[in-house]
Amino acid sequence: MPKISRGFHALCIASIMTFLLAPVILVFPISFSADAYVAWPPSAWSTRWYVALLHNEEMVTAFRNSLIIAACVTAITLIVAMPAAVALTRWNFLGRDALTSLFTAPLLLPSIVLGLAILVIFAGYGLVGSWPGVIIGHLVITLPYALRVLITGLSTMPAFVEDAAGTLGADPWRVFRRITLPLMTPALVASAALAFIVSFDEVVISLFIAGTQLKLLPVSLYHYVESWTDPLVAAVSALLVLGTLGIVLIVERAIGFGKAVSK
């Protein structure tokens, strides 16, 4: 390839990459703006919006609620998805594939439709705006992710190790505890992280079923942006990006470690 066209090619790739990452990166400088509204370039730099954030009771509460909800959802997701994944990979039964598709179907449904559907039915039972209501609503979308990761983890295990344990005298429960469970730790960590992030970030379903009583961070952010134009949200966004990065790094270490074990 001639030099010019290669240079042009590299430039194109770099610009597309910049486009992809621009919104995530630009919230950082804006979050340090000293201005009372979002403007580029900021007239001066400060940490005033981080300070404002700490004193914004709604945001702090919403953040705490979101953390609690995400933690609960993650725990329940693992408790529910783990046995299901074992059943769907270790048993051979009629309708297994259909059932697997059914359990991943909520991912294909637009979340706006799912949110509305859950709202309509939960409203009748007073679940809207309640903790259990929101947790169940989130479970519907975290379960398919976790199930997929766990099924992949279970079906890419080194061949025959479970059989081998059986021939050595381990009953099914001990095979699970001594062989299956340790070997799928990476998949468990990954699905837990995914469930946590999906639940913490979920906005559409929360918008429908969290109501006005139960404050959740993405919903509060959304409403804040609707009525305010100051860089407070940039500060929250910057923190969220860093938090997500942290989780990704933890998972990377866990899975990298796992890969080393199973190689």
């Binding site: 025959f160 190790v161 059989d163 081998a164 059986g166 021939t167 005298g169 381990a170 199973s262 190689k263």
Partner: peptide, 19 residues
């Protein structure tokens, strides 16, 4: 069941426990 049979099996892929 397998675990009560007391048979030593050597698998083609060896199936050693990687962990």
């Amino acid at each position: 069941p397998t675990y009560r049979r007391n048979m030593g099996v050597m698998f083609q892929s060896y199936a050693l426990f990687p962990h």
